[in-house]
């Protein structure tokens, strides 16, 4: 209380820019909005050109050249690498496996996702708990999911093998030649279904309950109700999810690496795994890069095609209004 208040220094109590005579507009306000925006975007643009566009262009160059793996010397090869890849039966085998894998993953993941979403719309004991736990697989790193499922599938120490043994069944090896791809797809679906479930649930919760009540009064069975009420609402989100999962499945690497390493005997050698082997184990960059370009083009075309088909006018919510 007894402190003596010092006299305030002369001048305004807040700092001001030293006046130079004329009012100065800050630089960011002097330029046009477009310039300001471009200045903010510039770092990302420069960065992406340097670390994405340039490498991708470089990979095109690699796919068109012969590289000596020991000396690193390159010479132009034209389309030799593409020809070599396309005439290799192993490539077609891998392509077929990739298609098979993508189909398995897409079917399993969308079925699980839709089932979970429909289930979570219902009321039951412990629903909040399930709601919270269901993201767990999705929040796992993909490589960790691979290791986790190794402990389920392994014929030596896996949980399934143990259960089979205790039930007195013959030894169970789901990672064997004929079942490797579906088993991998199951793990992939396990990991990515939660994402779809959440996404679909958000769309399901928009549907008014009255629609279902009215339909029941009209004597519609459960399948009819799903077809006429539910389906129009989830058609678009479902399509987006399918494309997302399918595209991801075509690029899957971590899971395959940890669970089967492309085996047994090449039974799960999908394109991504073949590219990895060709490039980083056999160090043949040309064919590896050519294969990665083929994969990139096919995936892009299929994804774009599917989007166009799925987003045709007439699909989606407007139909729901008619129902």
């Amino acid at each position: 209380m007894s402190t003596v208040t010092k006299p305030a220094p002369p001048g305004p109590a807040y700092p001001v820019e030293r006046s130079t005579g004329r009012p100065r507009t800050p630089f960011s306000s002097r330029i046009s909005p477009t310039r300001f925006g471009l200045l903010l975007v510039a770092p990302v643009a420069v960065l992406l050109v340097a670390i994405v566009i340039y490498p991708v262009a470089y990979s095109l160059y690699l796919s068109l050249s012969h590289t000596n793996p020991f000396t690193g010397v390159r010479r132009f090869a034209g389309v030799d690498n593409f020809q070599q890849v396309l005439s290799d039966p192993d490539f077609w085998h891998s392509t077929w496996l990739t298609v098979y894998y993508v189909v398995c993953v897409t079917v399993l993941a969308s079925a699980v996702a839709l089932g979970t979403a429909l289930l979570l719309r219902e009321r039951f004991v412990g629903r909040p708990v399930l709601m919270a736990l269901i993201v767990l697989p999705w929040s796992l790193s993909t490589y960790a999911a691979g290791v986790v499922w190794r402990y389920i599938f392994s014929p030596q120490y896996g949980l399934l093998a143990a259960i089979a043994q205790q039930l007195g069944l013959p030894p169970l090896d789901l990672l064997s030649k004929n079942t490797a791809i579906p088993a991998l797809a199951l793990v992939h679906a396990w990991q990515f279904a939660p994402l779809g479930a959440y996404f679909l649930l958000a769309s399901l919760q928009v549907i008014p309950d009255d629609l279902y009540k009215l339909a029941k009064v009209d004597g519609m069975g459960i399948l009819r109700r799903f077809r006429t009420i539910t389906r129009p609402y989830i058609r678009l989100p479902f399509a987006i999810y399918v494309v997302l999962v399918g595209g991801q499945a075509a690029m899957a690497f971590d899971l395959i690496y940890f669970l089967t390493s492309g085996g047994p005997g090449g039974a799960s050698q999908t394109l991504t795994y073949a590219i990895y082997q060709e490039t980083f184990q056999d160090l043949s960059f040309g064919p590896g890069a050519a294969m990665s370009w083929i994969l990139l083009i096919v995936v892009t075309v299929l994804t774009a095609g599917y989007y166009v088909a799925a987003m045709k006018p007439g699909s989606g919510q407007d139909k729901a209004a008619e129902a």
Partner: peptide, 29 residues
Amino acid sequence: VQMRFRQAGLLTIVATRSIPPVATTIPFF
């Protein structure tokens, strides 16, 4: 920001997301 090229810029940046890692590992390596 009320800028031109907004849509184009956003689309280009998002499009780079669809490039699979395998396509970039080889040139990076």
